[in-house]
Design a protein around this nucleic acid. Structure first.
Lengths: 257, 257
DNA sequence: TGACAATCGTAAACAGTGTATGCCAAGTTT
DNA sequence: AAACTTGGCATACACTGTTTACGATTGTCA
């Protein structure tokens, strides 16, 4: 029973979006400390208390901003994955899936480096006060976070189902981890074996570590350009999912024997 | 020509330390937003402007705090490494070095999980305004950061020299990375081959990624207890430095054949 | 169409924050 | 003893999030 939005509701939604866009622009142009209620209002030709008609607090505004950024990132990764489809033909479906996974990882890094402030917002140290919000509350942050994870998980699952790679058997997984993976599998509603989920999480650790290290500048003590380290990471990641890492330049992957 | 500190200088140094201790206590007990000049002064029975006699600004105070935390972490890791010495005898010197490396990684994680606010401060998203401070300025942060890195690098070097493990040859390293590694080697004054430094950085990526993911809570979408993932990471890391990962419980490592 | 009520904006105020200025007492140096 | 440096204070300014009371516009309904 979806009711058509009244004109009033539409302008309200538009204003809400404009607030978030302004907040994001401030975040990008002037850093996280600049995204204050007064600054947002000033940019929009309003006063700060007016924003309370749209968000209960500064924190809630930030949470919605985080959710927005999450979906933006997810969209970009999804887009990069879909773009592989239109690539040169002649590849097996398996190879396309492999290329998609690598392309998704690359896009994750590319987006991050182009949006460091946003990345810090969603993947940096948890913002004070924005942290311990339990699952019951309808927090848009966690929903969009899950949704982002699903982008990778679905692709990962497709690849595994199309061309299963080596994963640990259930009894090879550490018992405590096994139980947690079972719970995780229920939450995301997946049908993958636990070993595949373990591999998935290990890949996530690799990807996140490499990219966040570079984005946060915690690698500059040694390297100014960390892209070779990212390629090394891909070379580690590929065989974990049955791919053979070939060229760093052309993003080519082959199926491992 | 080291002059003895006058009584005045000593009390000044003591006060400076007390300020930093108070700041850290506020950070731990009430989060990063609570470490304000006024709060620090209030805790010490002073007023905020008085703190400007010791630090030029709030930023500089935070930078010194970061430096303090860095050396604290380095001390803990060093301590854990040295504690291996007094372990059960009968092991070859190589095996002791391997056990030290694993112990250092474990301590890094343990310290982090016990000091999440501090960890966020030094390894989280760069604080606004505290970021682009170039090398020329005498920033205590970068010095202590380097010093922390040296703890692991020295141990890593000792292990490699005592029992060299497989590393890529110079011409197997990507050219851009090779040049950067050469520069890095000069800065830290090491005599290790470039391939060893590459392996070192790859280990750092693994360690940082796993631990920060857990500390920042960006793994909770799947796991509440990420310790099994840490053990999996160690199992990945060990063979990179010629060690055989055996038991997750007893922190035992053997030399790989 | 007129009355009512919800909505959205404002201005003012409060308790915080970092920071700059000026003043003053105490300790150090000459 | 005189001069000077040091380390504290009170004050003030601009900024923050948030609350309150008030107005004006707008949609709804009798």
């Amino acid at each position: 029973m979806v009711q058509a939005l009244s004109r009033r509701d539409r302008v309200r939604a538009a204003t809400t979006q404009e607030i978030l866009q302004t907040a994001r622009r401030l975040l990008v142009e002037q850093g996280p400390t600049a995204v204050t209620l007064r600054a947002i209002a000033r940019e929009m030709g309003m006063t700060a208390p007016a924003l309370y008609r749209y968000f209960d607090s500064h924190d809630e505004l930030l949470r919605h901003l985080v959710a927005d950024i999450f979906t933006d990132l997810a969209d970009h990764v999804r887009g990069a994955i879909h773009a592989v489809h239109v690539g040169p033909a002649g590849r097996s479906e398996d190879e396309v899936l492999g290329a998609m996974l690598i392309a998704g990882c690359r896009e994750f890094r590319a987006w991050t480096l182009e949006h460091v402030p946003e990345f810090s917002m969603i993947f940096g140290s948890p913002l004070p006060g924005l942290e311990v919000l339990h699952e019951m509350s309808a927090d848009p942050t966690v929903d969009c976070g899950y949704q982002f994870g699903q982008v990778f998980l679905e692709l990962f699952g497709n690849l595994y189902r199309k061309r299963p790679f080596a994963i640990p058997a259930d009894d090879e997984i550490q018992p405590s981890l096994r139980n947690q993976l079972r719970r995780y599998r229920e939450i995301v509603g997946s049908d993958l074996p636990l070993g595949a989920l373990q591999t998935f999480l290990r890949c996530w650790v690799l990807l996140y570590g490499t990219v966040s290290l570079e984005a946060f500048g915690h690698m500059e003590f040694a390297l100014q350009d960390a892209s070779p380290m990212f390629e090394l990471m891909l070379a580690d990641l590929a065989p974990m999912v049955g791919l053979e890492y070939l060229s760093s330049d052309r993003a080519v992957v082959r199926l491992a024997r």
